[in-house]
Simulated assay, not measured.
Amino acid sequence: MGRLNHKIAVITGASTGIGAASAKVLADEGAHVLAVDVSDKVHDTVKEINAAGNKASAYIVDVSDAHAVERFAEEVKGKYKQVNVLFNNAGVDNAAGRIHEYPVDVFDKIIGVDLRGTFLMTKFMLPLMMDMGGSIINTASFSGLAADLNRSGYNAAKGGLINFTRSTAIEYGRENIRANAISPGTIETPLVDKLTGTADDVSGKAFRDNQKWVTPLGRLGTPEEVGKLVAFLASDDSSFITGESITIDGGVMAYTWPGEMLSEESWKRTTK
């Protein structure tokens, strides 16, 4: 506790899931969290943080809109003078068909929020970090390390985001600004509910059962577990780590193919 005392931490996509959980973890560590989202639900995150005796403020910003992000940066500069932590977490996803069938507007939306949004937030927040240094964390995905069927837009955005993180790390290391990506696997979030159905739906339950047996740890991850990784990367405990993509996926990316897991029923039974 207290690793981020007196720090200003900007978190995008902070209304639910990984963003909301990370906002709470960073606030518990002493940061004043500036919670950013396009959804009014971000106010609920902020209310919960403040009710716990910590500090948070809510901002409604479309991270894919350059003018909106620039106005936000100006407001932050006027009020707080600097930013110490930037967690670029805002993202959207959609399984929209094979590439020759993939709607252009869906591709543009995903690239616009996930990749362009990260670029814009980084571009306009960096000047507020350059005097004092800081830490930038970007939410990539294990889908940026390998491909998924029918999700070429998301795969492209997250893969690009990982290399954009490396660009940030090498360009700003001499200003003591570190940049790292996190690559979560399947985390129990509202986005998973939207894409697959909830844990109470037939389709959602089937998806979760499949994820459990294909994941060596035998379960989905939690947003709070990701939030703890974000707090580590935001703090001085990770002071010599930059330019990395850290996978948090329960072991999925540790093997090349499922092998006997596909046919060995005893393996599946271990997740019951």
Results as ranks from 00 to 15, higher is better:
His67Leu: 12
Val104Pro: 05
Phe72Asn: 05
Lys123Cys: 11
Lys47Asn: 14
Val63Glu: 10
Val63Tyr: 13
Ala66Gln: 14
Gly53Arg: 09
Gly91His: 02
Ile137Leu: 12
Asn84Gln: 05
Asp65Asn: 15
Lys109Ser: 12
Glu101Val: 01
Asp44Asn: 14
Leu120Cys: 13
Lys77Val: 04
Val85Thr: 05
Lys81Gln: 14
Gly144Ala: 14
Leu120Tyr: 14
Val85Cys: 06
Tyr59Cys: 11
Gly53Glu: 08
Tyr102Met: 00
Lys123His: 15
Ile137Asp: 00
Tyr80Leu: 03
Lys79Met: 10
Arg71Leu: 10
Ala95His: 07
Thr122Met: 06
His100Gly: 03
Val83Lys: 00
Met129His: 06
Met130Lys: 15
Val92Thr: 12
Asp108Pro: 04
Ala52Pro: 05
Ala147Gln: 11
Asp37Ile: 03
Ser143Tyr: 11
His43Ile: 02
Ser135Val: 02
Asp65Lys: 13
Asp93Cys: 07
Ile111Arg: 08
Asn50Leu: 06
Glu101Gly: 01
Ala68Ser: 13
Glu29Phe: 05
Asp108Tyr: 06
Ala96Val: 04
His43Phe: 08
Val61Thr: 15
Ala35Cys: 02
Gly53Leu: 09
Ala31Ser: 09
Gly112Phe: 12
Arg71Met: 10
Met132Asn: 11
Asp105Trp: 03
Ser135His: 05
Lys55Cys: 10
Ala146Arg: 15
Tyr102Asn: 04
Ile110Gln: 11
Arg98Val: 07
Tyr102Ser: 00
Val33Trp: 01
Ile136Asp: 03
Ala58Val: 07
Ala96Ser: 11
Lys41Ser: 02
Met130Ala: 08
Asp93His: 07
Tyr102His: 10
Phe72Asp: 03
Met130Pro: 01
Ser143Leu: 09
Val33Met: 08
Ala146Ile: 04
Gly133Ser: 05
Val104His: 13
Phe72Gln: 10
Val104Arg: 15
Leu128Asp: 02
Ala90Met: 06
Tyr102Pro: 00
Gly144Met: 14
Thr45Trp: 00
Ile136Val: 15
Lys109Asp: 12
Ser64Lys: 14
Glu75Tyr: 03
Asp40Pro: 03
Pro127His: 11
Ile49Glu: 01
Gly30His: 02
Met121Gly: 11
Lys123Ala: 08
His67Ser: 15
Ser57Met: 08
Ala73Ser: 13
Val33Ser: 05
Ser57Phe: 03
Thr118Leu: 13
Val83Phe: 04
Ala35Phe: 02
Ile110Ala: 12
Ile111Phe: 07
Lys81Glu: 14
Asp62Ala: 15
Ala35Gly: 02
Ser141Trp: 07
Ser135Gly: 07
Gly91Ala: 09
Gly78Val: 08
Ser141Glu: 07
Phe124Ser: 10
Glu101Ala: 08
Arg71Cys: 08
Ala58Arg: 08
Ser135Tyr: 01
Ala140Phe: 06
Arg71Tyr: 02
Met121Ile: 09
Leu86Glu: 01
Leu120Gly: 13
Gly30Asn: 04
